[in-house]
Design a protein around this nucleic acid. Sequence first.
DNA 1: TCCTACAATGGACAGAGTCTAAGTCAAGAA
DNA 2: TTCTTGACTTAGACTCTGTCCATTGTAGGA
Lengths: 136, 136
Amino acid sequence: MSDLLERLRGRGWRLTSQRRVVAEVLDGDHVHLTADEVHARAAQRLPEISRATAYNTLRELVSLGEVIEVSTDGRAKRYDPNAHHPHQHLVCSNCGTIRDVHPTGNPLADLPAEERFGFTVSEVEVTYRGLCSSCA
Amino acid sequence: MSDLLERLRGRGWRLTSQRRVVAEVLDGDHVHLTADEVHARAAQRLPEISRATAYNTLRELVSLGEVIEVSTDGRAKRYDPNAHHPHQHLVCSNCGTIRDVHPTGNPLADLPAEERFGFTVSEVEVTYRGLCSSCA
DNA sequence: TCCTACAATGGACAGAGTCTAAGTCAAGAA
DNA sequence: TTCTTGACTTAGACTCTGTCCATTGTAGGA
Protein backbone atom coordinates (compact mmCIF):
# COMPACT_ATOMS: atom_id res chain seq x y z
CA MET A 1 0.00 0.00 0.00
CA SER A 2 2.96 2.31 0.51
CA ASP A 3 3.34 2.59 -3.25
CA LEU A 4 -0.32 3.49 -3.48
CA LEU A 5 0.51 7.00 -2.34
CA GLU A 6 3.24 7.12 -5.00
CA ARG A 7 0.82 6.03 -7.68
CA LEU A 8 -1.72 8.59 -6.58
CA ARG A 9 0.80 11.39 -6.52
CA GLY A 10 1.86 10.28 -9.99
CA ARG A 11 -1.71 10.74 -11.15
CA GLY A 12 -1.69 14.32 -9.92
CA TRP A 13 -3.65 13.54 -6.77
CA ARG A 14 -3.30 16.39 -4.30
CA LEU A 15 -1.89 14.71 -1.21
CA THR A 16 -3.53 15.86 2.00
CA SER A 17 -3.14 14.43 5.48
CA GLN A 18 -6.77 13.24 5.34
CA ARG A 19 -6.24 11.29 2.14
CA ARG A 20 -3.05 9.85 3.51
CA VAL A 21 -4.65 8.42 6.65
CA VAL A 22 -7.58 6.98 4.69
CA ALA A 23 -5.14 5.22 2.37
CA GLU A 24 -3.10 4.00 5.34
CA VAL A 25 -6.14 2.58 7.09
CA LEU A 26 -6.87 0.50 3.98
CA ASP A 27 -3.61 -1.38 4.17
CA GLY A 28 -3.31 -5.16 4.40
CA ASP A 29 -4.86 -8.44 3.29
CA HIS A 30 -8.44 -9.49 3.96
CA VAL A 31 -9.30 -5.90 4.83
CA HIS A 32 -12.99 -5.19 4.20
CA LEU A 33 -13.98 -2.17 6.23
CA THR A 34 -17.20 -0.22 5.91
CA ALA A 35 -16.99 3.49 5.18
CA ASP A 36 -17.83 4.29 8.78
CA GLU A 37 -15.15 1.93 10.05
CA VAL A 38 -12.63 3.56 7.73
CA HIS A 39 -13.70 6.93 9.06
CA ALA A 40 -13.45 5.79 12.68
CA ARG A 41 -9.96 4.38 12.22
CA ALA A 42 -8.80 7.40 10.28
CA ALA A 43 -10.16 9.60 13.06
CA GLN A 44 -7.96 7.79 15.58
CA ARG A 45 -4.96 9.17 13.77
CA LEU A 46 -6.46 12.45 12.61
CA PRO A 47 -9.38 13.39 14.86
CA GLU A 48 -10.60 16.29 12.74
CA ILE A 49 -11.27 14.23 9.63
CA SER A 50 -14.92 14.47 8.62
CA ARG A 51 -17.23 11.72 7.55
CA ALA A 52 -17.78 13.40 4.18
CA THR A 53 -14.07 13.37 3.48
CA ALA A 54 -13.79 9.69 4.28
CA TYR A 55 -16.67 8.97 1.92
CA ASN A 56 -15.24 11.24 -0.79
CA THR A 57 -11.79 9.72 -0.57
CA LEU A 58 -13.15 6.19 -0.72
CA ARG A 59 -15.23 7.06 -3.76
CA GLU A 60 -12.15 8.46 -5.47
CA LEU A 61 -10.01 5.46 -4.63
CA VAL A 62 -12.71 3.27 -6.13
CA SER A 63 -12.98 5.30 -9.31
CA LEU A 64 -9.19 5.26 -9.64
CA GLY A 65 -9.35 1.47 -9.46
CA GLU A 66 -7.22 1.31 -6.32
CA VAL A 67 -9.94 -0.05 -4.08
CA ILE A 68 -12.92 -2.31 -4.78
CA GLU A 69 -16.38 -1.69 -3.43
CA VAL A 70 -18.08 -4.84 -2.15
CA SER A 71 -21.61 -5.22 -0.89
CA THR A 72 -22.07 -8.69 0.47
CA ASP A 73 -25.02 -8.14 2.76
CA GLY A 74 -27.19 -5.32 1.47
CA ARG A 75 -26.11 -3.23 4.41
CA ALA A 76 -23.07 -0.95 4.36
CA LYS A 77 -20.70 -1.30 1.43
CA ARG A 78 -17.21 -2.53 2.24
CA TYR A 79 -13.92 -1.39 0.77
CA ASP A 80 -11.28 -3.87 -0.35
CA PRO A 81 -7.78 -2.56 -1.07
CA ASN A 82 -6.78 -5.80 -2.81
CA ALA A 83 -7.74 -4.36 -6.21
CA HIS A 84 -4.70 -5.45 -8.21
CA HIS A 85 -5.17 -9.19 -7.58
CA PRO A 86 -8.42 -10.57 -9.03
CA HIS A 87 -10.27 -12.53 -6.39
CA GLN A 88 -13.70 -13.43 -5.06
CA HIS A 89 -15.21 -13.38 -1.57
CA LEU A 90 -16.10 -15.93 1.06
CA VAL A 91 -18.54 -14.62 3.66
CA CYS A 92 -19.66 -16.05 6.99
CA SER A 93 -23.47 -15.94 7.05
CA ASN A 94 -23.41 -15.64 10.81
CA CYS A 95 -20.73 -13.13 11.82
CA GLY A 96 -20.12 -11.47 8.47
CA THR A 97 -16.39 -12.17 8.32
CA ILE A 98 -15.06 -11.84 4.77
CA ARG A 99 -12.04 -13.59 3.24
CA ASP A 100 -10.53 -13.08 -0.18
CA VAL A 101 -10.49 -16.34 -2.13
CA HIS A 102 -9.15 -17.50 -5.48
CA PRO A 103 -11.39 -20.11 -7.13
CA THR A 104 -10.14 -22.10 -10.08
CA GLY A 105 -12.00 -21.95 -13.38
CA ASN A 106 -13.47 -19.07 -15.30
CA PRO A 107 -17.11 -18.39 -14.49
CA LEU A 108 -17.42 -16.09 -17.52
CA ALA A 109 -16.91 -19.12 -19.76
CA ASP A 110 -19.74 -20.89 -17.93
CA LEU A 111 -22.41 -18.56 -19.27
CA PRO A 112 -23.55 -19.87 -22.66
CA ALA A 113 -24.39 -17.39 -25.41
CA GLU A 114 -28.11 -18.27 -25.30
CA GLU A 115 -28.13 -17.32 -21.63
CA ARG A 116 -26.73 -13.84 -22.28
CA PHE A 117 -29.90 -12.23 -23.63
CA GLY A 118 -27.90 -9.94 -25.91
CA PHE A 119 -25.82 -8.55 -23.04
CA THR A 120 -22.16 -7.71 -23.47
CA VAL A 121 -20.92 -9.43 -20.33
CA SER A 122 -17.68 -8.06 -18.95
CA GLU A 123 -17.44 -9.00 -15.30
CA VAL A 124 -18.37 -11.72 -12.85
CA GLU A 125 -18.63 -11.48 -9.14
CA VAL A 126 -18.77 -14.64 -7.06
CA THR A 127 -19.72 -14.73 -3.40
CA TYR A 128 -19.36 -17.95 -1.46
CA ARG A 129 -21.41 -18.18 1.73
CA GLY A 130 -21.22 -20.47 4.70
CA LEU A 131 -20.11 -20.60 8.31
CA CYS A 132 -16.61 -19.77 9.45
CA SER A 133 -14.78 -22.10 11.84
CA SER A 134 -15.75 -20.03 14.89
CA CYS A 135 -19.44 -19.92 13.99
CA ALA A 136 -19.87 -23.51 12.74
CA MET B 1 -47.17 -18.73 -7.94
CA SER B 2 -50.82 -19.67 -7.48
CA ASP B 3 -49.74 -22.70 -5.47
CA LEU B 4 -47.59 -20.44 -3.32
CA LEU B 5 -50.70 -19.39 -1.45
CA GLU B 6 -51.54 -23.07 -1.00
CA ARG B 7 -48.10 -23.83 0.38
CA LEU B 8 -48.28 -20.90 2.75
CA ARG B 9 -51.69 -21.86 4.04
CA GLY B 10 -50.34 -25.38 4.55
CA ARG B 11 -47.62 -23.95 6.75
CA GLY B 12 -50.19 -22.31 8.97
CA TRP B 13 -49.71 -18.88 7.51
CA ARG B 14 -52.62 -16.65 8.34
CA LEU B 15 -53.93 -15.56 4.99
CA THR B 16 -54.83 -11.89 4.87
CA SER B 17 -55.73 -9.75 1.90
CA GLN B 18 -52.45 -7.83 2.31
CA ARG B 19 -50.34 -10.96 2.17
CA ARG B 20 -52.31 -12.20 -0.79
CA VAL B 21 -51.69 -9.10 -2.90
CA VAL B 22 -47.98 -9.06 -2.02
CA ALA B 23 -47.70 -12.67 -3.13
CA GLU B 24 -49.65 -11.93 -6.31
CA VAL B 25 -47.44 -8.99 -7.21
CA LEU B 26 -44.43 -11.30 -7.05
CA ASP B 27 -45.65 -13.54 -9.83
CA GLY B 28 -43.74 -14.24 -13.02
CA ASP B 29 -40.31 -14.77 -14.52
CA HIS B 30 -37.49 -12.25 -14.36
CA VAL B 31 -39.34 -10.37 -11.64
CA HIS B 32 -36.92 -8.45 -9.43
CA LEU B 33 -38.85 -5.71 -7.70
CA THR B 34 -37.62 -3.58 -4.83
CA ALA B 35 -39.62 -3.55 -1.61
CA ASP B 36 -41.01 -0.14 -2.46
CA GLU B 37 -42.02 -1.30 -5.93
CA VAL B 38 -43.75 -4.28 -4.41
CA HIS B 39 -45.53 -1.95 -2.02
CA ALA B 40 -46.55 0.42 -4.82
CA ARG B 41 -47.96 -2.37 -6.98
CA ALA B 42 -49.71 -3.98 -4.04
CA ALA B 43 -51.23 -0.60 -3.20
CA GLN B 44 -52.76 -0.39 -6.68
CA ARG B 45 -54.88 -3.38 -5.76
CA LEU B 46 -55.27 -2.67 -2.07
CA PRO B 47 -54.74 1.03 -1.40
CA GLU B 48 -54.67 0.77 2.39
CA ILE B 49 -51.71 -1.59 2.54
CA SER B 50 -48.88 -0.06 4.55
CA ARG B 51 -45.21 0.00 3.75
CA ALA B 52 -44.40 -1.89 6.96
CA THR B 53 -46.70 -4.72 5.95
CA ALA B 54 -45.07 -5.00 2.54
CA TYR B 55 -41.65 -5.17 4.21
CA ASN B 56 -42.85 -7.66 6.83
CA THR B 57 -44.46 -9.92 4.27
CA LEU B 58 -41.39 -9.89 2.05
CA ARG B 59 -39.17 -10.75 5.00
CA GLU B 60 -41.41 -13.68 5.84
CA LEU B 61 -41.52 -14.95 2.28
CA VAL B 62 -37.72 -14.85 2.27
CA SER B 63 -37.36 -16.71 5.55
CA LEU B 64 -39.86 -19.31 4.32
CA GLY B 65 -37.64 -19.81 1.29
CA GLU B 66 -40.35 -18.78 -1.16
CA VAL B 67 -38.59 -15.64 -2.38
CA ILE B 68 -34.91 -14.77 -2.76
CA GLU B 69 -33.43 -11.49 -1.65
CA VAL B 70 -30.94 -10.07 -4.16
CA SER B 71 -28.79 -7.01 -3.72
CA THR B 72 -26.99 -6.37 -6.96
CA ASP B 73 -26.17 -2.72 -6.62
CA GLY B 74 -25.79 -1.77 -2.98
CA ARG B 75 -29.01 0.18 -3.23
CA ALA B 76 -32.44 -1.28 -2.52
CA LYS B 77 -32.68 -5.05 -2.20
CA ARG B 78 -34.73 -6.82 -4.85
CA TYR B 79 -37.07 -9.75 -4.42
CA ASP B 80 -36.98 -12.70 -6.78
CA PRO B 81 -39.89 -15.17 -6.65
CA ASN B 82 -38.00 -17.74 -8.71
CA ALA B 83 -36.76 -19.45 -5.54
CA HIS B 84 -37.43 -23.06 -6.53
CA HIS B 85 -35.21 -23.01 -9.63
CA PRO B 86 -31.52 -22.43 -8.84
CA HIS B 87 -30.15 -19.64 -10.98
CA GLN B 88 -27.78 -16.71 -11.05
CA HIS B 89 -28.17 -13.10 -12.17
CA LEU B 90 -27.08 -11.01 -15.12
CA VAL B 91 -27.22 -7.28 -14.47
CA CYS B 92 -26.91 -4.31 -16.81
CA SER B 93 -24.36 -1.92 -15.31
CA ASN B 94 -26.10 0.99 -16.97
CA CYS B 95 -29.86 0.62 -16.56
CA GLY B 96 -29.92 -2.01 -13.81
CA THR B 97 -32.06 -4.54 -15.70
CA ILE B 98 -31.76 -8.01 -14.17
CA ARG B 99 -32.19 -11.36 -15.90
CA ASP B 100 -32.16 -14.82 -14.38
CA VAL B 101 -29.47 -16.98 -16.00
CA HIS B 102 -28.36 -20.60 -15.74
CA PRO B 103 -24.61 -21.02 -16.10
CA THR B 104 -23.12 -24.44 -16.69
CA GLY B 105 -20.64 -25.87 -14.21
CA ASN B 106 -20.64 -25.87 -10.44
CA PRO B 107 -18.85 -22.89 -8.91
CA LEU B 108 -18.82 -24.58 -5.48
CA ALA B 109 -16.46 -27.20 -6.89
CA ASP B 110 -14.14 -24.42 -8.06
CA LEU B 111 -13.18 -23.42 -4.53
CA PRO B 112 -10.29 -25.63 -3.39
CA ALA B 113 -10.14 -26.78 0.22
CA GLU B 114 -7.08 -24.66 0.97
CA GLU B 115 -9.05 -21.62 -0.10
CA ARG B 116 -11.89 -22.28 2.33
CA PHE B 117 -10.18 -21.12 5.51
CA GLY B 118 -12.06 -23.63 7.63
CA PHE B 119 -15.45 -22.38 6.43
CA THR B 120 -18.35 -24.74 5.82
CA VAL B 121 -19.34 -23.38 2.43
CA SER B 122 -22.95 -23.99 1.50
CA GLU B 123 -23.92 -21.46 -1.13
CA VAL B 124 -22.57 -19.54 -4.10
CA GLU B 125 -23.98 -16.44 -5.63
CA VAL B 126 -22.78 -15.38 -9.06
CA THR B 127 -23.52 -12.00 -10.57
CA TYR B 128 -22.61 -11.34 -14.19
CA ARG B 129 -22.32 -7.70 -15.16
CA GLY B 130 -22.28 -5.98 -18.52
CA LEU B 131 -24.42 -3.91 -20.84
CA CYS B 132 -27.81 -5.01 -22.11
CA SER B 133 -28.63 -4.74 -25.79
CA SER B 134 -30.43 -1.41 -25.34
CA CYS B 135 -27.55 0.19 -23.41
CA ALA B 136 -24.60 -1.20 -25.40
C1' DT C 1 5.76 34.36 0.38
C1' DC C 2 1.53 34.75 -1.97
C1' DC C 3 -2.39 32.86 -4.80
C1' DT C 4 -5.83 30.12 -6.10
C1' DA C 5 -7.89 26.03 -7.44
C1' DC C 6 -8.86 22.10 -5.22
C1' DA C 7 -9.95 19.76 -0.78
C1' DA C 8 -12.13 19.44 3.88
C1' DT C 9 -15.75 20.56 7.02
C1' DG C 10 -20.20 19.97 9.25
C1' DG C 11 -24.75 20.08 9.02
C1' DA C 12 -28.82 19.31 6.37
C1' DC C 13 -30.91 16.09 3.52
C1' DA C 14 -32.45 11.66 1.20
C1' DG C 15 -33.33 6.69 0.56
C1' DA C 16 -33.95 2.20 2.52
C1' DG C 17 -35.34 -0.27 6.13
C1' DT C 18 -36.83 -1.21 11.19
C1' DC C 19 -39.50 -0.53 15.34
C1' DT C 20 -43.39 0.50 18.28
C1' DA C 21 -47.83 1.30 20.23
C1' DA C 22 -52.38 1.14 19.18
C1' DG C 23 -56.07 -0.56 16.47
C1' DT C 24 -58.08 -4.41 13.55
C1' DC C 25 -59.34 -8.87 12.08
C1' DA C 26 -59.01 -14.16 10.72
C1' DA C 27 -60.29 -18.19 12.28
C1' DG C 28 -61.16 -21.48 15.94
C1' DA C 29 -64.45 -22.24 20.02
C1' DA C 30 -68.93 -22.35 21.84
C1' DT D 1 -73.71 -17.21 14.32
C1' DT D 2 -71.23 -14.63 17.62
C1' DC D 3 -67.33 -14.24 20.67
C1' DT D 4 -62.55 -14.17 21.76
C1' DT D 5 -57.89 -13.77 21.21
C1' DG D 6 -53.48 -13.74 19.43
C1' DA D 7 -51.63 -12.59 15.23
C1' DC D 8 -51.61 -8.99 11.72
C1' DT D 9 -51.71 -4.15 10.08
C1' DT D 10 -51.06 0.68 10.46
C1' DA D 11 -48.80 5.28 10.67
C1' DG D 12 -45.25 7.54 11.85
C1' DA D 13 -41.02 8.06 14.30
C1' DC D 14 -36.50 6.46 14.15
C1' DT D 15 -31.86 4.45 12.54
C1' DC D 16 -28.38 3.70 9.32
C1' DT D 17 -25.91 4.63 5.17
C1' DG D 18 -24.71 7.75 2.03
C1' DT D 19 -24.90 12.40 -0.60
C1' DC D 20 -25.00 17.43 -1.13
C1' DC D 21 -23.84 22.13 -0.35
C1' DA D 22 -22.03 26.47 1.30
C1' DT D 23 -18.24 27.84 3.74
C1' DT D 24 -13.55 27.57 5.25
C1' DG D 25 -8.89 25.83 4.78
C1' DT D 26 -4.62 24.55 2.42
C1' DA D 27 -1.18 22.12 -1.02
C1' DG D 28 1.78 23.26 -4.13
C1' DG D 29 3.12 26.14 -8.07
C1' DA D 30 4.76 31.03 -9.45
